[in-house]
């Protein structure tokens, strides 16, 4: 079982097309499912832990728990969407094949995150600022996401129609994943913060936070716009609370 898992992990990185074929074929998907789930949980946990190294302490444990959690919750929410989109756009796949495919793609992304962890760790250790580390993490997520999309494209069908299915799926995946992660903040933790919370209060949205964080990284600090979710007591600048999302 262990050897089989290692082989699947190797194929996830080296042969996305083979993995995609395996998902589409009518073969037993359990080994691939378990290996992909392990890759997702371990890779994301390691990356989450690395993100929290600048804050340290309890944040390490929280981030190592929340990054995999955000990925898994997102998967649970978006898998039916891909199944429905693929079927309605002329690329039908069995539900088990869609689950295997999406989980394998996530596992691949998590392995890419794991590979990028030393770079992020080095950058944090070199003392890059809080907001720059947020953007660095977002860039890592984007890179990992691209590698996952490659596998998905192989699985759905490497054609224009397949690309269209993936593009439509992206419209569901990106906001769902981003907002899920936004709800599970903080992942990095502000160094000046005395207490490390497991979750923050609900406020604003992921898109607003990324915009303000990008401005803050250039030294431009803006107060948040009034919105439907009132900020919790003591929160004065949304940009200070803004963080990346997996």
């Amino acid at each position: 079982m262990f050897q089989e898992t290692v082989q699947v992990l190797e194929r996830l990185l080296r042969s996305p097309s083979q993995i995609a074929k395996h998902c589409a074929a009518d073969e037993d998907p359990r080994a691939l499912f378990l290996a992909s789930l392990c890759a997702t949980l371990l890779g994301a946990a390691a990356f989450g832990g690395v993100l929290a190294t600048s804050r340290g302490g309890l944040q390490l444990l929280y981030s190592a728990t929340k990054v995999p959690l955000a990925l898994v919750i997102t998967l649970v929410l978006v898998v039916p969407a891909l199944h429905g989109l693929a079927a309605s756009l002329g690329q039908p796949l069995r539900l088990s094949a869609v689950v295997s495919l999406v989980l394998a793609a996530t596992g691949r992304a998590a392995l890419v995150l794991l590979a990028l962890s030393p770079v992020v760790w080095l950058a944090l250790d070199r003392g890059i600022g809080y907001h720059s580390s947020v953007l660095l993490a977002a860039a890592c997520y984007a890179l990992a996401g691209l590698s996952a999309l490659g596998l998905l494209w192989h699985g759905v069908g490497k054609s224009l129609r397949g690309a269209f299915v993936i593009a439509c799926f992206g419209l569901v995946l990106v906001p769902t994943g981003a907002q899920t992660a936004w709800l599970l903040r903080p992942f990095i933790g502000r160094p000046a913060q005395a207490r490390v919370p497991f979750l923050r209060h609900r406020e604003s949205s992921f898109a607003d936070a990324m915009y303000l964080s990008a401005l803050s990284s250039q030294g431009i600090y803006r107060a948040p716009e009034p919105n439907s979710h009132p900020a919790p007591r003591g929160a004065t600048n949304l940009a200070d609370d803004a963080e990346e999302a997996p």
Binding site: L34, V98, S100
Partner: peptide, 21 residues
């Protein structure tokens, strides 16, 4: 035991896999 845990915690993902296999 593994299947039971996955069915309980990750059922939207595991159910199609378990039934397909």
């Amino acid at each position: 035991a593994t299947s039971f845990l996955l069915s309980l915690l990750l059922w939207p993902l595991w159910l199609p896999i378990a039934l397909a296999s």
